[in-house]
Nucleic acid binder design. Structure first.
Length: 640
RNA sequence: GCUGGCGUAGCUCAACGGGCAGAGCAGCUGAUUUGUAAUCAGCAGGUUGGGGGUUCAAGUCCCUUCGCCAGCUCCA
């Protein structure tokens, strides 16, 4: 396992900032500040920590170059905006940024000017010099910049021992900074630098504080590498599930229905169905019991569970019948499943009880959060709740992790990370239940994960309000990391709902509860899956598995009979007997990423075969229809 | 929710500084009867996201609203 070392600031550097939107650790002190990106810190001995999740293509030299480029950008920004106050500006994966308090938002021409000015500064080959300064001198240097003053104060008072304060200077620009930097600005290459975007960012990642202007840029060894990077970005955009989803007619959104409420088109629905039936079979084998529950429930139910008070702001407003009484669109399935559990007395003999449902839930996500299928307001959780004895917890968790891994491997997700999400030790108010119960839950789930042998990181402050969890994270086309599968251990909801079972001692006992969802949200999973395979789905989930293409209208009869045979084998297949050339039909099928094209003409009609062309362009040859059906069945079985 | 940007035909995108809204693909009709990534011709397609304003004149400028995008914050 990889723990995040808690090290003193003096012997650590910001190594890597990966993805965005999630934070490891919860402390708001400078050494573990909640910058906007996930920050992993480590000792300067890189080799010793080689197992750390280091972004692909990480290059310590470029890291320094980007850090220095951020300083150069800051100089240019200050020249352009005399009132500007620089705050922090670290390198991140592939890029760098710097946050400023600016007198006005920058326009495009400002950015062009800044970029141009950066190139001049770079060509000036100004040396980076470092020196240690006293707190008093530091305060004097940055007396006009309250942000730097705040940082200095924390360096002085931070975590007991005073830290040395260093400032770096190149040309006219002096910055509070721990380094390291390149020897002089010439090490940054003028033709490898480009400004990318601006964005708002809160000071110290705190929404209650000043909002700053962030400028993103990137820096590479030369123009070729810069252009390669920009090409990569462009290719990623091509793979974006939002454009593929539209082009392949998988899903759509309608203003008339509402933002974040996806409409699944027939092909997208077929894809989902394939995923769902796959998981249903797996769950049957593992003795899960499907249940079906309604989309709404009384407000009181969610008061008891805690979801209503905890997440009031991010729920659709309740349907109130009278003051405080009424119904809520369910934001979670667990309270309903708990009612299934409690519909009668439970004996220890029937535990574990595993209740599964593909339950649709609704959450009023903030407008700025919505995007494609990865963050929506109405979605389907492949939810199950396992009610078991405490002694069964570990085995159950291991089984749910096993199932989650099965799901990921069946869809060839190999590049995922595992996160054990624990309480925030400094903000216990966010959680329900007693500390002792949490301690037990956290150590139980940690032991279970450790026994699976998975590599994982622990993330403080990422637990659910009712318990710790194991999250499986996968990156999207743009490198953003998303939580898909999740396994959550919960000792608190059984408490809140006063759940019990009768033990062998004829006494009432409290069961433990495990919430788990291997896909997580079907919507998000499909979104990430589309990007993962670029829309070229494996045949067992492909919305259209094969298309029958006739050479000319003369073979419409034969083509139709082939098509009907395939239909009778429950294949997802379509027929194209238009009066077009085969080349045209193939091109169309190819761009729709259909796994197999079955060409039929005179030869095939005579011999009762189909000519099989794979999506790869490969000519698979002629075969009978039953042979083709077998081939697909075998390929599908093998894939999962 | 916040900061910034963007909304033109089903899709991708044009329309100099305010001066008659256009193209390709898709669609429809017809011709063609095709052997592994685009056959030809014709037709149709729009209240330039909605509302308001400035102007002789608004896709273009201003206000407002809805939506989308990037980032921040949040994420049961």
């Amino acid at each position: 396992m990889v723990a995040l070392p808690k090290v003193a600031r003096s012997d650590c550097i910001v190594l890597a900032v990966i993805g965005q939107s999630r934070t490891i650790g919860s402390s708001k002190s400078f050494s573990r500040a909640r910058f906007q990106l996930k920050t992993i810190r480590m000792k300067t001995d890189l080799a010793a920590q080689a197992e750390m999740h280091i972004p692909k293509g990480y290059d310590p030299r470029l890291f320094k170059v980007r850090h220095s480029a951020a300083h150069v950008m800051a100089q240019a920004v200050v020249e352009r905006f005399p009132g500007a106050r620089p705050t922090i500006g670290p390198p991140i994966e592939d890029r760098f940024y710097y946050d400023f308090d600016l007198p006005r938002p920058p326009k495009e021409e400002d950015l062009a000017w800044i970029e141009q000015r950066m190139k001049e500064i770079i060509k000036g080959r100004h040396a980076f010099s470092v020196r240690e300064v006293s707190p008093g001198e530091a305060r004097e240097l940055f007396k006009d910049n309250p942000y730097k003053i705040e940082l200095i104060s924390e360096l002085v008072n931070g975590s007991g021992n005073a830290q040395p304060i260093t400032v770096y200077q190149h040309d006219t620009f002096v910055d509070l900074c721990r380094g390291p930097h390149v020897p002089h600005t010439g090490y940054i290459k003028a033709n490898g630098v480009k400004l990318l975007a601006t964005a708002g960012a809160y000071w110290r990642g705190d929404a209650s504080r000043q909002q700053l202007t962030r400028i993103y840029g990137t820096a590479w060894k030369n123009r070729t590498e810069l252009e390669a990077y920009l090409t990569r970005l462009e290719e990623a955009r091509q793979r974006d599930h939002r454009s593929l989803g539209r082009r392949l007619e998988l899903f759509t959104f309608s203003d008339k229905v509402g933002p974040g409420l996806p409409l699944w088109l027939p092909k997208g629905a077929a894809l989902r169905e394939a995923l769902v039936s796959f998981l249903k079979k797996e769950q049957l084998r593992r003795n899960y019991q499907p249940v079906i529950t309604p989309h709404i429930g009384r407000l009181d139910l969610y008061r008891t569970s805690g979801h209503y008070p905890y997440y009031k702001e991010s729920q659709f407003p309740p349907m109130e019948e009278s003051e405080g009484e009424g119904y809520l669109l369910k934001p979670m399935n667990c309270p309903h499943h708990i009612q299934v559990y409690t519909h009668r007395r439970r004996s220890y003999r029937e535990l574990p009880i595993r209740l599964a449902e593909f339950g649709q839930v609704y959450r009023y996500e903030q407008t700025g959060e919505l995007g494609g299928l990865t963050r929506v307001r109405g979605f389907t959780v492949d939810d199950a709740h396992i009610f078991c004895r405490h002694s069964q917890v570990k085995a159950e968790i291991k089984d749910t992790i096993d199932l989650t891994l099965k799901v990921l491997s069946s869809l060839s997700f190999e590049d995922y990370s595992v996160q054990l999400s624990l309480r925030d030790p400094e903000d216990t108010g966010k959680y329900t239940g007693r500390a002792a119960v949490w301690d037990e839950a956290e150590s139980a789930i940690r032991e279970a994960v450790q026994e699976t042998g998975l590599r994982y990181v622990e993330a403080l402050g990422e637990a659910a309000f009712y318990g710790p969890k194991v999250d499986f994270m996968v990156r999207d086309a743009l490198g953003r990391e998303w939580q898909l599968g999740t396994v959550q251990l919960d000792y608190n909801l059984p408490e809140r709902f006063d759940l019990s079972y009768i033990g062998p001692d004829d006494q009432r006992h409290r069961p433990a509860m495990i919430h788990r969802a291997p896909f997580g949200s079907l919507e998000r999973f499909v979104g990430v899956l589309i990007e993962h395979c670029g829309g070229a789905f494996p045949v067992w989930i492909a919305p259209e598995q094969a298309r029958v293409l006739s050479i000319s209208e003369r073979f419409e009869g034969y083509a139709t009979s082939v098509y009907q045979q395939l239909l009778s084998h429950e294949m997802r297949v379509r027929l194209d007997v238009r009066s077009e050339k085969v080349g045209y039909k193939i091109r169309e099928a190819q761009s729709e990423k259909i796994p197999y094209m079955l060409v039929v003409g005179a030869r095939e009609a005579d011999s009762g075969t189909v000519r099989v062309r794979a999506r790869s362009g490969q000519d698979v040859g002629a075969m009978s229809v039953p042979a083709f059906v077998n081939r697909i069945k075998e390929e599908s079985a093998q894939a999962r």
